[in-house]
Amino acid sequence: MSEHTDAAEALGRIARMEDASRRQGGWYTRYLLVFGATQLFLVPAVLLGHGTALAAVALCVHVVAVAGLSLYAARQRTVRRGFGLRHGLAIGTWAVVYGAAVVLGGTMFVDSVPFTAVATICCVLPLAAMALLERRGSA
């Protein structure tokens, strides 16, 4: 009878762990949304405020936000399978889009408000898309 009891206890622990994992699984969605929100300030400041204190302040705010988000991520107890690949894809895509926006905004579209608006949306889009996919996957 103890084998059945042990098995039942093990299944109960597994069910509790799965429940806790599902409840805590939304952290990465919040991470991506906050990171995306920082782009709404960073991209316009960098593209329209070249050589000014605004660009420097924006970059400092971005560094502080990334550091805070990294601490937040490190304190999370659960990650879903394939997290590293999804995170690498989200941040890698953002980095390519952001890099292209900065290069094009600094060379071909200097002080262009329409380009800055489109570039900002393009920088937020990969993060928002991954947040949506992550939310659907953890539900």
Rank of each mutant, 00 (worst) to 15 (best):
V102G: 06
T116V: 06
V124K: 09
V102S: 09
L132R: 09
G137F: 00
A117M: 09
G137E: 00
F109L: 11
D111A: 15
V103I: 06
V118T: 04
V103A: 09
M108W: 09
L127N: 03
A117R: 05
Y98V: 04
R136C: 02
Y98A: 13
V124A: 13
T116L: 08
P114A: 12
E134S: 09
S112H: 04
S138K: 10
G99N: 03
F109Y: 15
L132K: 05
T120Y: 08
A101G: 08
T120R: 08
V110T: 08
V103H: 11
V110E: 13
E134M: 01
V102R: 14
P114R: 12
C122M: 11
P126I: 00
S138N: 06
L133D: 04
I121M: 14
L127P: 02
G106F: 15
M108V: 01
S138P: 00
G137P: 00
A128C: 06
V113I: 14
R136W: 13
Y98R: 02
I121V: 15
C122I: 02
S138E: 06
A100K: 03
A131T: 07
V124T: 12
A128S: 07
L132F: 15
S112N: 03
G106C: 10
V97C: 04
A101W: 15
R136Y: 08
V113L: 15
V96K: 07
V110G: 06
R135D: 01
E134C: 02
L125P: 03
L127H: 06
V103D: 01
L132C: 07
M130S: 08
F109S: 07
L104I: 13
S112D: 07
M130W: 14
L125K: 00
V102D: 09
A101Q: 13
V124F: 15
G106I: 13
E134I: 00
S112F: 05
R136H: 12
E134N: 03
A117P: 00
R135K: 04
T116M: 10
A131L: 11
A101F: 13
A117D: 02
C123N: 03
L133K: 05
P114S: 07
S138W: 10
L127M: 09
M108Y: 06
P114Y: 14
L132P: 00
G137V: 00
S138D: 00
P126M: 03
G137C: 00
T107G: 01
A131S: 07
A139S: 12
R135A: 11
V110Y: 07
A139L: 10
Y98C: 01
T107W: 11
I121Y: 12
R136F: 10
P114T: 11
M108S: 02
A128G: 04
L127G: 01
A101R: 14
T107L: 06
F115E: 07
L104F: 14
I121K: 05
T116D: 11
V103R: 07
A117E: 02
R136A: 13
G105A: 13
T116Y: 12
D111E: 15
F109V: 05
G105V: 11
T107P: 00
C122W: 02
I121R: 02
V97K: 10
M130N: 07
P126E: 03
I121Q: 03
A100S: 09
G99H: 10
R136Q: 11
L132S: 05
G99Q: 03
